[in-house]
């Protein structure tokens, strides 16, 4: 187990390093990063001054070292638009995103798990067809479009739910559900197929021969084993949710970090986009590391992979 954790840890460090390198290199192949950071009306002296100030006239390896160390210190420059440290802006908005993601996870598991079990254990019934339909739509339909359609139906036409922005609990329903859709569909599909697979296994046959009731077989034996793949894919769901939050927060004008990235993007606020993406992606990478370690505990087979 120690070896496994160590290996995954090194892997995580490499991922972070690659991420930082790609961002660093991209800013430099596109020209001088100063041009990305300065407003368009900046004078030539301003430009020279900023190059000196940021040390962009120094050799690349020193610049890279500076880039990494200042990122680790949490100092990633000021946003052009807001004129404030980008990390500060990020931290301000982060709770909003986390709350929304929490609601989305609740939807994804709260609906996805029962639906998956139902579909898997009642294969070929109408409930199964319904669950499969949900899974197919959830995976294929773009979340931003589903968000808009739901907004149109529930907010504009029926007037039941607020259309956008943050507020009381009713404000969480539409964006939370739209954000959860991909994870919801994934969970349903995975659980359905693993329940089917497990119901067909030897240990279930044995339990049945022993006289264990069908309900006990399903809830005590099958469910435990069927949930393993759901945990495995939790890392993927986190990644999907973080990427999805950029889109969903934009649709619903949700003041989170995803929306912050979008604002930076349309305002050509390079330092802001750079740091939001760097922090968010690092969080995803670390979260994936944690999920993998947990997975190693739940399912010992993975450690010897």
């Amino acid at each position: 187990m120690k070896r496994y954790i160590f290996r995954r840890f090194i892997q995580t460090l490499i991922s972070l390093l690659i991420l930082a390198t790609v961002i660093f290199v991209l800013a430099r192949v596109s020209g001088n990063p100063v041009d990305l950071m300065l407003p368009q009306y900046a004078s030539e002296e301003d430009r020279e001054h900023m190059i000196k100030q940021l040390g962009l006239d120094r050799p690349y390896h020193i610049q890279f070292y500076e880039f990494i160390t200042s990122a680790l210190r949490g100092d990633m420059g000021n946003s052009i638009r807001f004129g404030r440290p980008t990390t500060e802006l990020f931290m301000e908005r982060l709770p909003n995103t986390l709350r929304l993601s929490g609601v989305a996870l609740l939807f994804a598991f709260g609906i996805g798990i029962p639906l998956g079990i139902l579909a898997g254990s009642k294969r070929g019934t109408q409930a199964d067809s319904f669950a499969r339909g949900v899974a197919v739509i959830g995976i294929a339909a773009p979340s931003f479009w589903v968000g808009l359609v739901l907004m149109n139906i529930f907010a504009v036409h029926l007037g039941l739910l607020p259309a956008a922005r943050m507020g009381g609990i009713e404000h969480y329903i539409l964006p939370g559900f739209s954000l959860s859709l991909f994870a919801l569909a994934g969970t349903t599909r995975l659980l359905r197929s693993s329940v089917i697979e497990n119901l067909d296994s030897e240990y279930v046959k044995f339990a049945r021969t022993k006289g264990v009731s069908a309900r006990m077989v399903l809830w005590k034996h099958v469910l435990k084993n069927s949930l393993i793949p759901v945990v495995t894919f939790a890392g993927m769901q986190i990644t999907g949710m973080v990427s999805g939050s950029v889109v969903i927060e934009t649709v619903f004008a949700w003041p989170g970090v995803g929306r912050l990235a979008y604002e930076g993007l349309v305002n050509r606020d390079y330092p802001l986009v750079q740091s939001v993406i760097l922090i968010k992606a690092s969080m995803v990478i670390v979260a994936n590391f944690v999920v993998d370690i947990l997975y190693g505990y739940i399912d010992p087979r993975i450690r010897y992979d």
Binding site: T12, L19, V246, A261, L265, V273, I277, V284, N288
Partner: peptide, 9 residues
């Protein structure tokens, strides 16, 4: 491990 959408941004 790097989220593709974010990198693409």
């Amino acid at each position: 491990a790097i989220p593709s959408m974010l990198l693409a941004l």
